[in-house]
Design a protein around this nucleic acid. Structure first.
Lengths: 217, 217
DNA sequence: TCTCTGTCAAGAGCGCTGCTCTCTAACTTG
DNA sequence: CAAGTTAGAGAGCAGCGCTCTTGACAGAGA
């Protein structure tokens, strides 16, 4: 059902996108904390109450933006998944994640910063949310790497995941995933100021070290 | 000047602490986002306007809480710095960081989550903020480890830091630092749900791997 | 001892927020 | 065309951070 049937449906679809676009614009300048439904409505020239026909609450609008952000990051990562060797693919994805985060810092903060209090991530977000780590897993899988020296308890915990989405080195991929986003978050949130900031060299080094740890060459 | 001179000074000092305590209590239940000066004042049985005599703005109160949180985490880390070998000390500190973060999730989110928009970390926060990584550096230094295979450009960037605070393996320590907090943040912010959560086994594994990477035995 | 000064808490109020409810006008469907 | 649905506007509620003014009080100097 891609084509809207009635004019009303089409208008609704377009306005929904317009609202998200304007909200994203405000997000980029003011941050999620200062995102105001009234300000969005004002920019769109409509009454604030009218927005509630499209998003039942501020949190629902934020959720929509969260899903979009996960998908935008996932798209960027997938597009960067190029290269002759698994190592090149891995590097491409990791650097694309950082690039996207720097270019969309408030959207990044929205999905990898403090979760909104009292807010439970709806089911819709988990699919888009795992795209990056899933991609890293695919690259590891293609490289034919294998987890080694994993404690029994941990191996048992990861067995079902490895069975569902075989990567060969799920534990190490998850490790790499936490390191990657830890590094990006620290850079964006200002923790590296005074040490590894600007972080280009440090990031490149860390990505290569972790890739080696996963077993890529 | 630990003893307050006049009764007025003493009352002021005590009230300042009471305000922070009550704010911390609300932080623990509602999160930083929902911390309200009016609610704090209400709980303390005073007018909201009176709070402004102690903290000129909501951000200033948050800044005070941030500094306290950094120091509480630093204290917890230092207290856990025990063990016969550098590896044991390292493990103790890393696990203490995680423990503290889990026990004070909202305070952790306050300092390692999304920075408050339009808010610049005042100078006062940088000292407390580096206590954990400084401690990790000290342990590495005591172990006599050395950075190896560091690209020239990166080494040059870290040279001044290494000169000021010698650790022997500053680059790898910073790497470990980003990995540690990336892992803790992912666990607390719900990113590991469905894979490494509960994260006890994964955390222990990752800490030991990184300790090995730094060169500790 | 009395007065004067600086400090303090309180109250009212401004402009903003998310959100709800009601009402009207327009559109869609049978 | 009539009935039913939906979109948008407006008023209003309770809450927020913050400011300004007002009246009470403690401590210092005459």
């Amino acid at each position: 059902m891609s084509a809207a049937r009635t004019a009303r449906d089409r208008a609704r679809q377009e306005l929904t996108i317009e609202i998200k676009d304007e909200a994203r614009r405000q997000l980029a300048t003011d941050g999620a904390h200062n995102l105001s439904l009234r300000a969005v409505a004002r920019s769109l020239g409509m009454a604030s109450s009218a927005l509630y026909r499209y998003f039942p609450s501020r949190d629902d609008l934020l959720t929509a933006l969260i899903i979009d952000a996960y998908n935008a990051l996932g798209d960027a990562a997938e597009q960067a998944d190029q290269g002759a060797t698994p190592l090149e693919r891995w590097r491409g994805v990791c650097h694309a994640v950082r690039r996207w985060a720097i270019d969309h810092r408030h959207e990044y903060a929205l999905i990898y910063g403090t979760p909104i209090p009292g807010y439970q991530a709806p089911r819709d977000t988990v699919g888009p949310a795992v795209r990056v780590v899933w991609l890293l897993g695919q690259i590891a899988h293609a490289a034919g790497v294998e987890d080694s020296a994993i404690p029994d308890e941990l191996r048992a915990q990861f067995d079902p995941i490895e069975a569902a989405v075989p990567t060969g080195a799920t534990v190490r991929v998850v490790f790499a995933w936490t390191q990657l986003f830890g590094m990006v978050s620290f850079e964006l949130f200002g923790q590296l100021v005074g040490s590894a900031d600007p972080a280009d060299a440090f990031f490149g080094y860390a990505v290569d070290e972790v890739a080696g740890f996963v077993g890529l060459t």
